[in-house]
Design a protein around this nucleic acid. Structure first.
Lengths: 105, 105
DNA sequence: TGACCTTATGCTGATATGCGCATATAGTAT
DNA sequence: ATACTATATGCGCATATCAGCATAAGGTCA
């Protein structure tokens, strides 16, 4: 793998690497949602959610569709959810390891 | 999922979200490597590689082992590689979509 | 048209990240 | 102890990211 290829992968991961964006992607797992609903995922300004959605869209992870006044976002590549499972596995393994280290003391 | 849980996942993804760290993890896929080898993955300062390794370690993604003067790093959770596959899938799907859009014009 | 609702964008400041250089630390060897 | 190799850390600078506020832009409805 060369640097350019690594950068492409890194950019996708970076697009996912924020708590609010993780919440958004997770919420979209079951299907499309309008911004108004996603707004309630975290206690932050509406403009902020809008920007997070924009960066997910830029990365190709979600796409949007307007219906009247509302805009609906949906996952373009549900495989993204696997990346989360993996993250959980890292944390779980890490916790287990640290506990073992503690016992060894 | 609450914000705290989302943050934990985001922190793992963030630890992976840099071209150099992607290169490192990719290089470790086949087994442990010493820093001296990882140093050659990209044209950057040695101190920089060291820091990237430290952040991967902090996240629990790699672990290290000293042998004489050398320090060897290895993947602690190989499932990380799946996250990359997923990133590739996102890019591929995105490219395909854009091409279709172009044809539609 | 004007009032209203939903979502996006410009601006600015605060904080985080990444980099190289110099230097510290750990280990080996003479 | 000295010299040498390998890796990590302190520092300062440049740039990126994120937040909120204000406001624009797109759409509805009376």
């Amino acid at each position: 793998m060369n640097y350019q290829q690594a950068k492409i992968r890194a950019d996708i991961l970076k697009a996912l690497a924020h708590p609010v964006r993780v919440l958004i992607v997770n919420a979209l797992a079951d299907g499309e949602r309008c911004v108004c609903v996603l707004n309630e995922l975290a206690a932050i300004d509406q403009s902020n959610i809008s920007r997070h959605l924009a960066s997910l869209k830029r990365a190709g992870i979600v796409s949007d569709r307007r219906d009247g006044m509302k805009v609906y976002y949906r996952l373009e590549t549900p495989c993204i959810l696997k990346a989360f499972e993996c993250a959980v596995e890292v944390v779980r393994a890490d916790t287990k390891r640290r506990n073992k280290d503690l016992k060894a003391v």
